[in-house]
């Protein structure tokens, strides 16, 4: 470090700074992977505008060019509006509930003084995040079946059977709650970090002013992390059309398509199952386009209202 300081350094900053090259080269593998798996395959978006027949080759130029036909097919498909509606509804509900659950949990945990209890709780709420939906899905199918443990409990308490997995209404609620249950523990990490960053002097001052615990939370903790809440919520907006594919594909059935079929599962059925590559690509591209627009909007809003910037 000493040598660097003695050398005349051009004060240009960013990637032009000579001592940044080490860090940039560390970034390289990630960038290459990103290019290979996220950017290069975009060339395949071409097939959204073709009547794609595999035997004619991907870039041979002999595919029939049909313009926006696949898009109009997609938008007039009666399953599309249903899937779009479900996607948006599920994502937004999950986002709101997820945010509330994570923040609430983080605040509760930050108030825990016993560190063993704290760590135990933390671990217990994280664990579901690491279980794959394949496993969780089959466990849930057993638990929420009509003769599963949950319905038996409801019956023994005198309630009627609920078709969690077979009726559209309860099914979407199950999707939302189970996804939030699985992920909120992981979300608390960032909020707990934010809470830890609040100046303890503020709490002290609040206590001296006679604030009790709820008032401290109301007037110190929440304002202290509101910045993070706003940023994370805004950044999540970009993913509003990404619904949890892994979860739904493992739980849904034709009976609940009405409330559970989302864009990702529709693409899967059209593209992978039915081999209608053009249509699936068109829907995927639509999803990507909306995602790009929303992400840009979110970054702008984050910059505007929370002074968050990436560049």
């Amino acid at each position: 470090m000493l040598t660097t300081r003695n050398k005349p350094v051009r004060r240009k900053g960013g990637i032009y700074r000579s001592d940044n090259w080490a860090y940039i080269s560390m970034l390289l593998p990630t960038v290459i992977l990103l290019l290979m798996f996220n950017y290069l395959p975009m060339a395949g978006l071409l097939i959204a505008f073709e009547r794609f027949i595999p035997a004619k080759g991907l870039f041979s130029g002999s595919q029939d060019w049909v313009g926006l036909r696949s898009f109009s097919m997609a938008f007039t498909d009666p399953l599309f509006p249903q899937a779009l509606r479900n996607t948006v509804f599920l994502s937004i509900s999950k986002m709101i509930l997820y945010m509330m659950a994570s923040v609430g949990m983080a605040i509760l945990m930050s108030e825990l003084k016993n560190s063993f209890h704290k760590r135990l709780t933390q671990t217990l709420v994280y664990i579901p995040h690491f279980i794959s939906w394949i496993i969780l899905g089959s466990a849930m199918r057993m638990m929420f079946a009509s003769d599963g443990i949950v319905n038996r409990l409801i019956n023994s308490l005198g309630g009627e059977n609920v078709g969690f997995l077979t009726e559209p209404g309860p099914f979407s609620r199950l999707l939302i709650v189970s996804d939030v249950w699985k992920e909120f523990g992981f979300g608390t990490i960032i909020y707990m970090a934010a809470i830890a960053g609040i100046d303890p002097g503020l709490y002290e001052a609040a206590r001296i002013d006679g604030a009790n615990k709820p008032q401290q939370i109301r007037y110190v903790t929440i304002p202290g992390i509101s910045h993070i809440i706003v940023i994370l919520s805004l950044l999540n907006i970009g993913g509003v059309l990404n619904s949890s594919f892994d979860q739904i594909i493992n739980l849904y059935s034709p009976n609940v398509y009405q409330s559970g079929d989302v864009l990702d599962t529709l693409i899967y059925r059209k593209g992978i199952v039915a081999s209608n590559y053009s249509l699936a690509t068109a829907i995927g591209m639509f999803k990507g386009g909306v995602g790009l627009a929303l992400t840009s909007l979110a970054y702008y809003l984050a910059y505007r209202f929370a002074d968050y910037r990436i560049f």
């Binding site: 079946a145 003769d147 059977n161 078709g163 997995l165 077979t166 059935s253 009976n255 609940v256």
Partner: peptide
């Protein structure tokens, strides 16, 4: 007469 969970 039919299993309520057949759709699953």
């Amino acid at each position: 007469y039919i299993d309520k969970d057949f759709t699953l």
